[in-house]
Write a protein that binds this DNA or RNA. Structure first.
Length: 870
RNA sequence: GCGGACGUGGUGGAACUGGUAGACACAAGGGACUUAAAAUCCCUCGGCCUCUGGCUAUACGGGUUCGAGUCCCGUCGUCCGCACCA
């Protein structure tokens, strides 16, 4: 009997509607089942979803549907990270309004996501640009302000001259804005800051307990927070200047090397240098040059270590009468430590280079551990390993670590040192001079200063009537919005026109999902019940910023009583990108990119070649790269879903490539996935009536037993694979099960199968569909109907596999002779070591090799292997 | 420069805690069905040889072990993060 091909275009919308109408993914906070919070990073509504979204949400949906089948109450929400610059750029370029542009993009992308058949609770959807959301964010801001977690200060900021806004340190990459790519300038502005450094130690140390996170991400955060323990050491100036300074304080992680110090280097921005510059024109010039110095990797690499002798000297804190010269140096950063370091050339490579250049002394004060009496000859490589102190007065003879403590202890007694820990992490500057963001809810009054907007006056709404005809912040130019009476004295005052960094919006949305309509930021009891997120999936590009900010925010929300936990994400996973080949032709001598839809690829034994559709021009097949519009190597999810259906797209995304690695999108791969869908449809469809009629029964004998065992094994292994997110392995096992089902199914169809075999086949088919359902939900529903079921497979529990059925009664043991495989042994699983050894020694291959002699040793690894050593 | 990850067929990748290397898939080649094509089905598919068998093979060179893709040392290469952080 011929069966029609499976038609996802008809089937998928029908099941989406059925799920929707049954509201099976809308969940109840009071459900007594154990909770599971599955979250994928919410998208920025840029216009259309891309394949990266498809991959991310396909993976998340497998886990959500699997957990639901396993009996969990699964929270699986979706929203929109909807504030941000592209909306303003679009407004400027296309004469639209950011709001209209954003919400219309959301509508498009919501439709696209719905066409994927994701098991999302859409009743909890929100966008961060919804007034209701940023209202609560403003309330949080006020609470943070009151708790001292927000402050305002004048600071040097990273100014992006293209986007005309301030960037956080985290948003500057190699001296360029992360979005615009423009070279960032330094400006002095009054800015709002979140006091993330308050939690530096906690954020660092808690990483140790986040064992559900990739080690790589934890490491990146550790490095970013960048703790270093050391000491502040005071070097008194020998001749006081006219000004205020009478000493220079250095931060050092190696106070043990103080006896080897031969100079001080301070930042060009250091107050002592600036003061000195007032009377020394050459120094002014030097400082100006330092300011110009780029911070990009390449520039730093080749920038020469340069110094300017300030003509000042400081007293050595240990050695009576010894004086050290003070340099301003281009490699000392003002915003780390104290902006001043002491140089110990023998034990620091950079100091050594500096010392060689300016002819300063190089005094080794550490000897290697294995030759503590041998003075190290330092020529052009500093000795930086652990060692034993020499020529160091009271420190001599101590190991490095002990010497560090001793040095601090002695100097502390003289009031010249204090132990200190420094962090690389800076406070988080959140002021943005933009319109399309959450307004910072404060008012500036000439008399009362900075006044928080009373909570009863929230939300501070963004005005709709703004113009984007000029660069800069339209809120500044709005005729009336800024003007507001002071909440304290009633006098005319001005609203803050800065809005918040959009990273603030995404720092707490996961908590809002637990009670998205509450008129407080969270309902604490509800948030506590759902959080932490059990599994959070997103791109590795957020490994530092977003995840660190969210961890900070959770702590801040705990401090202000909005929830009661520190770590928002128990499990975390970073998925790889979707990449694609690139194609080029030469047009008038210049290379031009072609889209995959514009070319034809042919594959022969000799290799692959491509030509342009229509013209037949030969096409160069280029590198495999991240899908991007500029290289035209993008594949539109809408097209794929229209052609193959969402299930095929989802299944292909899960196949082959491990989820943390990049997946290469190929037409052949998608077609392969689609063929598999049709194959199952055909196999089941051809035997559908027979399958529906089979009665359940025992299926544990002979060939039926083998099939039954495979089905149980597959169920168990696929569950483990999904829990480990090894979707590619789960897919491979499903292929194996289907391959094994083909022949028995045709026996069933032909009416030749024994009752036992029939029962085994029926059970295997049902198991197959139930484990396939998280990956290909629509298709599984349709097949479930096909074999005569009337329930919804989305509501079916995960099959309960039987461990005892998985156990084999006959073992196949490979037999090695001297480590090389020579034979196989089939033996009862219950056989003991003696029986196995006897059976092995009776094998022809073994007898032949032994040639009548006794083996030296027989190694039997239970259920694994036997090795006969001769 | 510092820190980390990785290196397996033509390709994506499997291989548990050291135990049969190459599961599963893609591509390719051959065949069946067909007037033909598509679809489908069957076979071959790391390399070499004296081919019902054997040798060799997991970037390269050593080592530990009865046994190494897996552990250790060294070399080379690729990718990622940070970057004048004292």
């Amino acid at each position: 009997m011929a069966i029609e091909r499976y038609n996802p275009r008809e089937v998928e919308p029908r099941w989406q509607k059925a799920w929707d109408e049954a509201r099976i993914f809308e969940i109840d906070n009071d459900d007594p089942k154990p909770k599971y919070y599955m979250l994928e990073m919410f998208p920025y509504p840029s216009g259309r979803i891309h394949m990266g979204h498809v991959r991310n949400y396909a993976m998340g949906d497998v886990v959500a549907r699997y957990r639901r089948a396993k009996g969990y109450n699964v929270l699986h929400p979706m929203g929109w990270d909807a504030f941000g610059m592209p909306a303003e750029n679009a407004a400027r370029d296309n004469n639209t309004h950011p709001k209209g542009w954003t919400y219309s993009n959301i509508d498009t992308m919501r439709r696209q996501l719905k066409s994927m058949g994701l098991s999302l609770d859409w009743s909890r959807e929100f966008a961060t640009c919804d007034v209701e959301y940023y209202h609560q964010q403003q309330a949080l801001f006020l609470d943070f302000l009151e708790a001292g977690l927000v402050y305002r200060r004048k600071s040097k900021v990273n100014w992006d001259p293209v986007d005309m806004t301030v960037l956080a340190n985290e948003q500057v990459e190699n001296g360029r804005g992360w979005r615009s790519g423009a070279v960032v300038e330094q400006r002095e502005l009054v800015q709002w800051f979140f006091r993330i450094t308050e939690y530096a130690t906690d954020l660092l140390e808690s990483l140790d307990e986040l064992d559900g996170w990739p080690e790589k991400v934890r490491l990146m955060q550790r490095n970013w927070i960048g703790r270093s323990r050391g000491a502040r050491v005071t070097f008194p100036l020998v001749e006081r200047q006219d000004g205020t300074a009478d000493s220079i304080v250095c931060f050092s992680t190696r106070p043990d090397t103080l006896y080897g110090a031969s100079f001080l280097a301070i930042s060009a921005e250091h107050p002592v240098a600036l003061e000195r510059a007032e009377s020394v024109p050459e120094l002014r010039e030097f400082i100006a040059e330092c300011r110009k110095l780029g911070t990009s990797a390449a520039e730093v690499e080749k920038a020469e270590k340069r110094g300017f002798d300030l003509g000042l000297t400081v007293a050595h804190p240990f050695i009576e009468g010894k004086q050290l010269p003070v340099y301003a140096a281009n490699f000392v950063l003002m915003d780390y430590g104290t902006g001043a370091v002491f140089g110990c050339p023998a034990h620091d490579q950079r100091d050594l280079e500096f010392a060689r250049k300016y002819g300063l002394e190089v005094t080794p004060v550490l000897a290697p551990l294995d030759a503590p009496d041998q003075p190290v000859a330092v020529s052009d490589t500093a000795f930086v390993d652990d060692g034993v102190l020499i020529n160091s007065g009271p420190l001599s003879g101590l190991r490095k670590d002990a010497a560090i403590e001793k040095a601090i202890e002695i100097l502390a007694g003289k009031g010249l040192a204090v132990a200190e820990t420094n962090f690389r992490l800076r406070d988080w500057g959140i002021s943005r001079q933009r319109y399309w963001g959450c307004p910072i809810p404060v008012i500036h009054c000439d008399d009362c200063g900075v006044v928080p907007v009373p909570k009863s006056d929230l939300p501070v709404r963004l005005p709709d009537d703004v113009l984007f005809d000029k660069p800069g912040n339209p809120l500044d130019r709005h005729p009336t919005w800024r003007n507001v009476p002071c909440p304290v004295c009633g006098k005319e005052a001005r609203r803050e026109t800065d809005t918040m960094d959009t990273f603030v919006d995404s720092s707490w949305y996961f908590a809002r999902f637990t009670a998205p309509r509450a008129d407080t930021p969270t309902l604490p009891a509800t948030a506590n019940a759902w959080l932490p997120v059990d599994l959070y999936i997103g791109g590795v590009e957020h490994a530092i910023l977003h995840l660190l900010y969210s961890r900070f925010f959770t702590r801040g929300m705990q401090a202000t009583g909005h929830l009661d936990l520190k770590e928002p994400f128990r499990g975390m996973f970073t998925q790889g990108m979707v990449v694609h080949e690139t194609y080029q032709i030469d047009r008038d001598g210049r290379p031009e990119w072609l889209a995959p839809t514009e070319i034809n690829i042919s594959e022969k034994e000799g290799g692959r070649s491509a030509e342009r559709i229509g013209t037949g021009e030969p096409v160069r097949i280029g590198a495999i790269e991240k899908m991007s519009k500029s290289k035209k190597n993008v594949v539109d999810p809408d097209d794929i879903i229209a052609t193959y259906g969402a299930d095929t797209a989802r299944f292909f995304m899960l196949s082959d490539s491990p989820p943390e690695r990049d997946v290469i999108w190929t037409a052949a791969g998608v077609e392969g996935a689609h063929r598999f869908v049709q194959k199952i449809w055909r196999l089941l469809g051809e035997s559908a009536s027979q399958l529906a009629a089979i009665q359940a029964g025992a299926a544990d004998q002979g060939a039926a037993g083998d099939l039954s065992r495979l089905a149980h094994k597959t169920v168990s292994a696929v569950a483990t694979d999904i829990e480990k997110l090894a979707f590619n392995k789960a897919v491979a096992r499903i292929y194996e099960l289907v391959n094994a089902l083909a022949a028995p199914l045709s026996e069933v169809r032909a009416g030749r199968a024994t009752p036992e075999m029939q029962a085994a086949v029926k059970q295997a088919c049902e198991y197959l569909l139930r484990i396939l359902a998280p990956m290909m939900p629509h298709f599984a529903e349709e097949c479930w109907r096909l074999i005569g079921k009337s329930t919804m497979i989305a509501l079916e529990p995960w099959p309960a596999h039987d461990e005892t059925l998985i156990a084999e009664d006959l073992l196949h043991l490979p037999v090695q002779i001297n480590g090389k495989k020579r034979a196989d042994l089939a033996i009862e699983a219950s056989a003991g070591p003696e029986e196995i050894e006897a059976a092995v020694l009776a094998l022809d291959a073994v007898c032949l090799a032994l040639d009548g002699k006794q083996p030296k040793k027989v190694i039997i690894v239970p259920k694994r292997i036997v090795n006969v050593v001769i």
